[in-house]
Design a protein around this nucleic acid. Sequence first.
DNA 1: TAGTGGTCTAGACCACAGG
DNA 2: CTGTGGTCTAGACCACTAG
Lengths: 243, 243
Amino acid sequence: MTKKALRREPLYEQIKTVLIRRIGDGEWLVNDCLPSEWDLAAELGVSQGTVRKALTALVSDGLLYRRQGLGTFVSETPGDWGEGAMLTPGLFNERPDPLVQELIGVSRSHASDEMADALQVRRSAPLVRVRQLWRLGGVVVALDDAYLPAESFEGLDARWIRQAGGGVHAALQQRFGVRARCVGEQVRAVVPPREESLLLGLDPEEPALAVLRLSAGMDGAPVEWRQRYCRSRFWSWTRREKW
Amino acid sequence: MTKKALRREPLYEQIKTVLIRRIGDGEWLVNDCLPSEWDLAAELGVSQGTVRKALTALVSDGLLYRRQGLGTFVSETPGDWGEGAMLTPGLFNERPDPLVQELIGVSRSHASDEMADALQVRRSAPLVRVRQLWRLGGVVVALDDAYLPAESFEGLDARWIRQAGGGVHAALQQRFGVRARCVGEQVRAVVPPREESLLLGLDPEEPALAVLRLSAGMDGAPVEWRQRYCRSRFWSWTRREKW
DNA sequence: TAGTGGTCTAGACCACAGG
DNA sequence: CTGTGGTCTAGACCACTAG
């Protein structure tokens, strides 16, 4: 036994966990209104202030949104691009632009060592690969491949993805009840392989931004490994603070 | 007159503003302990909870840090790399590494249109350029040029920067009382110009990550425009969430 | 008008650090 | 032991939204 007693987890953290689970279980669907802070407080046996602290954290995590005078709601499944993520297209003082994704195809693949490590599957484990193209104003700006463990997502195919509105993450939510969120991201400057370079419309030897991203379910289990090549010729990728 | 009355700014926002100003004025220096939440509350005429909310916001902004049982303290001036910023070196599951900066030289330059726009100075306005090299484990990993309005920072030279510990931001704080923080960042994949490519030890035509960064003082006035080339060959640049 | 989130207060207890 | 931040409660008032 250790001398130091385990610090008990704060109440609002426990509330967060409960709410995440109940949302994941489908008790409240996308854009559903949660019970009011007071109702939740009564039901959970804590004060309204504690519920508020948990809700505020979930809002900043992007799982919920609030509208004063209306209530607290479940957010849309984030799109495949990764709304709250590191790289969004645009220049320093620009408005967000509409990104359109185009599904190219779904195929089978096997886990590289790097993927197997990130997805916590064995090496060469079977994966599903979903290849998509991103356009902005008609111009191709990015190409990405999403890799998912085939054993966990049997039956995921182009039809399901199209029915879900074209997004892998939307399909995961609808077909498997999994809400994926980005848990790690990497950026490199590379010259893409010839095939990808052609799809992107790059000159030979023209560099692109390569983004590697790992997504996990709300329970923390790795769900998707994504490799994306971004054109860096006309567009750049920006982060903006409140300013 | 408009029908809709102006919404009064929340108290904790006002408290934030007051504290930022008093820190900027040097009332508390780096690593100084602020008065306790209760003392601040009494002095400012608000409740302890309101002070806490303002302090919490400033902690998440990186201006303060707290240690339970001790107090609330003023953070170090962030280093020139940009500690809390988008790109920090390392692989997915790595610990942070010690980055060492080496001052190459300080020279005069003139604002390009892009710089003038970001720094809010006239085109071709005189600028001070500070060129630095970044090493990680002895290997050169990045090269950057910091551009500052010469009129605002007259006298900034290599000696002052060295005396401040080698950092531009540290020198700004010590010599001009300006705490700079990153307000916007951009990433591109490019093949650097020949001179920069040589300094970085890149092969000809080898791509690098180019990071453009605008920093502002606590009052929001633009202070520094920075262009950085990062080697992308052995190192990659990562963001990690709590995970 | 009723119900919601947004803010603020006052007071309480806990865990931690230091003398 | 004292003082600090960390958490939690109960209650209040405000601003916004919908019907």
